[in-house]
Amino acid sequence: MVYLPIALVNLWGASTLHSSPELAARLQTVLDHTMELVSAVHIACAQTMTARRAQSYCSYILSIYTTTFSYLAPAHSWWCFPFERLIGILQRLPINHKFGEFENTMLCSYIKTTMFCRWLARLDCPPAVQECRDIFDGVYAPKSSQNSSQEFAEDPMNDTIRVPDCAMTSAVPDDLYTLLRRRTAILRATLKFDSVIYSRASTHLGNSQILYYPRGDRTLTPVPASIKYIYGTLTGELVFAAQRHLLLDPHYNTINPFSFYPDFPAKMYLTGLESRLENVKVTWVVSHFA
């Protein structure tokens, strides 16, 4: 859903060259039709629904769906993907091709397991049973592949990244000094938060590309940037020092082919970066980008 429309826009969109005007017109028609479908799916899967989005969806598909989305709200509240996923899990269970009592056995086992877990969570659960629970958790609970205190700094409880106790300070580069106004700081190459790995550009370029809300204001449009440094503040929080990507220069008549499809969330920027560094907290980041 992401790669196909981006590829088609770059191959068939505005300012692309083709062997004949007829072929260019035909490909543009196919592209417009495809992008209408993609935009409709994007609107249907949005986390929020507005009157403008409902009207756009109406223009892409059918007018009857405007009333449907007005009453049902975002598709996340009523779609069936979780149930389809559960069905897939059940279908992969080994049953040795024996049917009949399988469904009843599975249902009873699920109920017994749920009741047993609920009993273990009660305050009046016997200490001996709780001790057995701790043993089983230690044996079967999933473990991280690496020690987070050594490789990453992560604190998912309060969504703040803390500097590890064993971290050492380093000399601050000149461009970072203009932002920090101090000569030493804790510098990191990578950082993991919410199961997402972020890196400085010199370590891994792909993991350094981020979309974030400027100053953490979620009413603003996210902007793309590249992480140049990951450093620790005086309060012990790890923060990004990032450079924004430059906007397309209208003086060079550069056409953004995605501007013709306002309901498809893609936009072109230059590969060049601003010279100015700015602080970006991890919780301001929306996602990586390409």
Rank of each mutant, 00 (worst) to 15 (best):
P257L: 13
Y261K: 11
Y261I: 09
A242L: 11
P265V: 02
Y252F: 13
R244Q: 04
Q243C: 15
Y252D: 08
D249I: 06
N256D: 15
A266I: 11
P250T: 03
S259L: 01
F258V: 09
L270H: 09
F260M: 06
L248N: 03
L247G: 00
P262Q: 11
T254N: 08
Y261F: 15
S259K: 07
F260Q: 11
S259Q: 12
H245W: 03
I255W: 00
D263M: 13
S259P: 03
I255Y: 01
P250A: 04
I255Q: 02
H245K: 13
T254F: 05
Y261E: 08
R244T: 00
F260N: 07
F260E: 05
P250K: 02
A266F: 15
H251L: 09
I255H: 00
P250R: 02
N253R: 08
L270A: 11
A242T: 05
L247D: 12
L246A: 09
D263S: 06
Q243A: 14
L270P: 03
S259A: 14
N256P: 06
L270Q: 14
F258H: 08
L270C: 10
L247V: 03
D249Y: 08
D249R: 09
T254K: 06
D263V: 03
Q243N: 14
N256E: 12
H245N: 12
D263R: 10
A266K: 07
D263N: 15
P257Q: 04
Y261Q: 07
T254L: 12
K267Y: 03
N253P: 01
H251C: 06
A266V: 14
A266T: 10
M268Y: 03
P257D: 05
Y252S: 11
T254A: 12
D249T: 06
N256L: 03
L246N: 12
P265G: 01
N253H: 11
M268C: 11
I255S: 01
Y269W: 09
Y269C: 01
T254S: 04
P262S: 12
A242Q: 06
F264W: 13
L246S: 14
P262L: 13
H245R: 15
T271Y: 14
L248D: 01
A266Y: 12
P265H: 04
D263F: 15
R244D: 00
L246F: 06
P265N: 10
F264V: 15
F258E: 10
Y252R: 07
L248Q: 04
K267D: 06
Y269N: 01
L247M: 10
P257M: 04
M268D: 05
I255F: 00
L246G: 03
P250G: 05
T254Y: 04
M268F: 05
P250S: 08
H251Y: 08
F258I: 13
M268I: 12
N256F: 00
L247R: 13
I255A: 05
T271N: 10
L248H: 02
Y261S: 07
T271G: 08
Q243F: 06
D249S: 11
T271L: 12
L248K: 03
I255E: 05
Y269T: 01
D249W: 08
Y252I: 02
D249A: 05
F264E: 04
A242M: 10
T271E: 08
Y261L: 09
T271A: 11
P250N: 02
K267G: 06
N253F: 09
H251W: 07
R244W: 00
S259I: 02
N256H: 02
L246I: 13
P262K: 11
P250F: 07
D263L: 07
